[in-house]
Design a binder for these strands. Structure first.
Lengths: 147, 147
DNA sequence: TCTGTCGTAACGATTATCGTTACGACAGCC
DNA sequence: GGCTGTCGTAACGATAATCGTTACGACAGA
């Protein structure tokens, strides 16, 4: 599967904005978040743009511009973030149509589709159990200065 | 995430071999399976090679060669297949180390690692509930000649 | 008007997967 | 012993997704 860090970076950005706002700041810039995540501000802007489309964050333009949460961290779940930044299904079908003259080739796609639907439903249920509030709590619970 | 059809094709191949053997044949060739899945025999051999390493199938060489199941379909689960053909974890961390001088950058990876572990454990549990026997049953239950 | 940031296009680098060709290795059969 | 069919695997190109980067216009407050 492949290494998808989009959900990780998006959660990082949301936790960063949330903490920054709790420290009294109005908005966070993509440059600040990018420095924390050690990546490029454009990468952050692209991801936050998708989160904005999903109604999780807002952005201001002009001078003193930046990003702010559109919802409380406690009301945002990893499922919200996942659906905002992950495009396709977890598992894919064949890239070409299997041989419909073969019994297995004919029945495999309906069979796997049903099975995958159940599994992805469970995955979504698990993602929905984790709020960004908990993510930030876990982040702050990490031990300082590890030896 | 991206579209990983490896699990789908591997399940297709196992179901095909299982059904073929129930029809009285000893071994199945990669060419036959490739025809059913509408792909190249080398793709099938590569995938079945990984399943062989996991102890799910066996292969014979020489004349009259081919592939056979090393276990009953009822004792093979999608988790066995998943672990055999999917290399990495479901979600990835940052590709570069986050800023360790930032509270969020420092704590985000331990936090997400713990959360991801729980979620992948649930995914594995779901995959383990589906046997290849059930997959084949669902395949054969697909309606014929759909209109 | 100046400044800082967003919004977004464009491009190259990297990586994973897949399809394909090729060819040696192997084992049964004549 | 040679013939034949299949595996085992390397090699290469095509495709697609993601990421990092540069660039630049749009916007809004000072």
């Amino acid at each position: 599967m492949s290494a998808n860090s989009r959900l990780t970076i998006a959660a990082h950005a949301l936790a960063w904005i949330g903490l920054y706002q709790r420290q009294g700041h109005e908005v966070a810039t993509s440059e600040q978040i990018a420095a924390s995540a050690n990546t490029n501000p454009v990468v952050i802007r692209r991801l936050l743009g998708e989160l904005r489309r999903a109604g999780l964050v807002e952005s201001r333009r002009g001078a003193g511009a930046g990003w702010s949460l559109a919802r409380e961290l406690g009301s945002i779940t990893l499922l919200d973030v996942y659906e905002a930044v992950e495009p396709g299904p977890l598992f894919a079908m064949h890239r070409t149509v299997p041989d419909q003259g073969c019994v297995v080739g004919h029945g495999i796609q309906p069979a796997m589709r049903g099975i995958y639907q159940d599994i992805e439903e469970t995955l979504r249920h698990e993602l929905a159990r984790v709020t960004l509030e908990k993510v930030l709590r876990d982040v702050l619970a990490a031990p300082h200065q590890p030896l």
